[in-house]
Structures are given as C-alpha cells and as structure tokens.
C-alpha cells in the first residue's frame, strides 16, 4: 500500500486531531493545543489554516457547525482510525526504549 502523504503525522497534525476530539473552531484549536502541550506547541495562523484545509480534504475532520462566521470542526471516524494507527506505531516505538 502506498504511504499516505501526511503519515507519519507531524506533531502539529497530531495535536490538532487530538484537540478535535471535541468540536472546536480554528482559534480555539490553537488555544487547546497551547494547553495540551503546556505551551510547547504554539500554532501560527498559516500552519493551522493549511493543516485544517489538508485534513478536511482527506476527510479526517469535518465541519459540524458554525460559531458566528467561524467553522467548527470535529474529528471523523477516518480521523480516529488514523490516530489509532499512529498510536500503535508510537506505542511500539516506546516499547523499544
């Protein structure tokens, strides 16, 4: 099987998929990731916009509503599957330490 162009997941993509376990709009995703990473990962506007655009294209996330004019995103079953694949990869790596 040909490898997916976004795999293995970058740190940014990883955090976004994890943050989107709950529905959030763009800026709230950045704030959530600040919190989850304890300030280590601070997303810039262009990076977040590009990542959301990309992941929506592959159906890993989807729009589930609007807050004002802001789109609210949520992870899809396909996104959950990708996270599970990545988790297995990382758990295996960790077991080798």
């Amino acid at each position: 099987m040909k490898k997916h162009p976004l795999l293995p997941l970058s740190e940014t993509m990883h955090y976004i998929l994890i943050a989107l376990q709950e529905p959030l709009h763009g800026y709230a995703i950045m704030q959530k990731i600040d919190e989850l990473s304890e300030g280590a990962v601070h997303l810039a506007a262009g990076t977040l916009y590009g990542a959301l655009d990309n992941m929506a294209k592959y159906d890993w996330i989807e729009q589930v509503g609007l807050e004002g004019r802001r789109k609210i995103y949520h992870i899809t079953p396909e996104g959950q599957r990708i996270l599970a694949v990545e988790k297995a990869r990382l758990v295996h790596l960790l077991s080798l330490y």
Binding site: S10, T12, H42, A44, G46
Partner: peptide
Amino acid sequence: QEADQLFSDRQSTKNY
C-alpha cells in the same frame, strides 16, 4: 520573533 511568523512547523514552512 516566534509570534510574528505565519508558519510554526517545518511541513507548512516547506509548503509556503
């Protein structure tokens, strides 16, 4: 410096 950038990781900088 960091907050003044549009891109915060390698993937997106490369794409830019």
